[in-house]
């Protein structure tokens, strides 16, 4: 009975939401027909937000990758929040898993030689790839989050290949703290230098060059390190559980 009721509710919600979603414009849309209102200066502008990003993004942020421009610069504060969410998740998992940490690790079967060797070999390359993704965040698709995730997956590989592998928690913590402090520090520095939190105060440089787009690469490196160490921390906490 309950099952049927649940199903009916789910289907109804699905229908209701689907009816709303069909209103979302799809494909080629004319962004110019929107215009926005600036509540601070109380002015209406014949321009839409996405269109503005596309037209002016490169100029205003110095980032070649518009997505990065939006994520790190226009809406950098959201990114700070998202990083915090991840930080919270890792902290929360760490705090919950704390009781299990001191217990002994169970004997587990070793992985076979192929896996061990391959992961040893791949480990460095994957890290390198991850670093590449976040360092080039403002130039190519990708950025701190996927880069960090890639780094974490390299550690995951190690965990799978060597059951006794254990990343030092202290180091992970230091890494994520420093990365987080960098992010907030850059923000506060912007506040002091220019009066805006997270202001892009460094010179933009030439577009498409590695050293361009002001603070964006700095932030993305911090985010990458942070996400990498946090996800590794979560994996480690989960792996650390032994009955």
């Amino acid at each position: 009975m309950k099952r049927i009721l649940g199903g009916v509710i789910a289907v109804l919600i699905f229908i209701v939401l689907a009816l709303a979603f069909v209103h979302i414009p799809f494909g080629n849309i004319d962004l110019a027909e929107y215009h926005y209102y600036n509540p601070v200066d109380n002015e209406h502008t014949q321009d839409s937000v996405p269109q503005h990003y596309l037209d002016e993004g490169k100029k205003e942020t110095g980032s070649t990758n518009i997505v990065t421009a939006v994520v790190v610069d226009y809406r950098g504060f959201d990114t700070l929040g998202e990083v915090t969410v991840l930080f919270l998740a890792s902290t929360g998992v760490g705090s919950i898993m704390y009781i299990f940490e001191k217990e002994k690790r169970r004997k587990v079967r070793r992985a076979n030689a192929v896996v061990e060797t391959a992961s040893k070999l791949l480990f460095g390359f994957i890290i390198l790839f991850g670093a590449y993704i976040f360092v080039h965040g403002h130039l190519t698709p990708g950025g701190g989050f996927p880069g960090g995730a890639v780094i974490a997956s390299s550690f995951l590989l190690l965990y799978l290949a060597y059951p006794r592998f254990h990343a030092e928690h202290k180091n992970l913590n230091i890494a994520e703290s420093l990365a987080g402090l960098t992010f907030v520090g850059v923000g506060i520095l912007g506040l002091f230098l220019a009066g805006y939190f997270l202001y892009n105060f460094l010179p933009f440089g030439l577009p498409t060059y590695l050293f361009s787009a002001g603070v964006i690469p700095v932030i993305y490196v911090a985010v990458g390190v942070k996400v990498g160490s946090e996800l590794t921390g979560i994996v480690d906490a989960m792996m650390g559980v032994r009955e």
């Binding site: 698709p141 996927p146 995730a149 890639v150 997956s153 995951l156 996800l231 994996v235």
Partner: peptide, 20 residues
Amino acid sequence: DVAITEASIGAGLSLAIMIF
């Protein structure tokens, strides 16, 4: 950008964590 993130986190890491 989103595709990379989704693939690495959604399909990779979170699956691994769930399996653990």
